[in-house]
């Protein structure tokens, strides 16, 4: 981090009125925050209201942004000199990510939707990996039971899908 650079803080306000202060540069990981600041808003004391995201979820998102911002800043400070250290840091961050996202499915849903709405690509990616891992080896009906989804296909649609991919359909419904 360049010395003497002024420290700018941003406040994010959750749907249930909780506010979170973080470095602007950390908040800029979100495309939505970036857009808001670019049009000259959000720097005021009122902060940026984040709709549809509760304080509980937003606090997790803020933790993620802070961690990834500090990791990126540390990597910049190191220059390219120590390749080995860089690889080690990357691995450490990946392990942190894995632990961070090791959540039960309901929390994962909230974080995924929040990351999607805020436009935090890294976090969307992380949630999707974790979620894809949870789906592996499960049949459609197992997924429905696990996530409480109703089978809302009409019989014509089902016939069409069966035609498109007959070999798994017959077995695993």
């Amino acid at each position: 981090m360049a010395a003497g650079k002024p420290v700018v803080m941003v406040t994010l306000v959750s749907s249930d009125g909780q506010s979170f202060q973080l470095l602007e540069e950390a908040a800029l990981l979100s495309a939505m925050v970036r857009d808001t600041i670019q049009i000259g808003q959000g720097r005021g004391p009122a902060g940026i209201p984040i709709r549809n995201i509760t304080g509980q979820t937003l606090s997790m998102v803020v933790v993620y942004c802070n961690k990834h911002y500090t990791a990126a800043a540390a990597a910049d400070g190191d220059d390219a000199a120590d390749e080995e250290k860089k690889v080690a840091n990357k691995k450490q961050l990946r392990e942190w990510d894995e632990q961070f996202i090791n959540l039960e499915q309901d929390k994962l849903y909230d974080i995924l939707v929040a990351a999607n709405n805020l436009g935090i690509d890294g976090l969307v990616d992380l949630c999707c990996w974790r979620f894809a891992d949870m789906m592996k080896g499960k049949s459609a009906s197992e997924i429905r039971v696990k996530l409480g989804i109703r089978d809302d296909f009409t019989s014509e649609q089902r016939a069409q899908i069966e035609k498109d991919s007959p070999w798994v359909w017959s077995r695993t419904t």
Binding site: A132, M135, K136, G137, K138, S139, A140, I143, R144, L147, I149, R150, D151, D152, F153, Q157, I161, S165, V168, W169, T172, T173
Partner: peptide
Amino acid sequence: DRVNCHRVCRSWH
């Protein structure tokens, strides 16, 4: 896995 996810519900499909 992919085909199984396709067949969960309409919005996923």
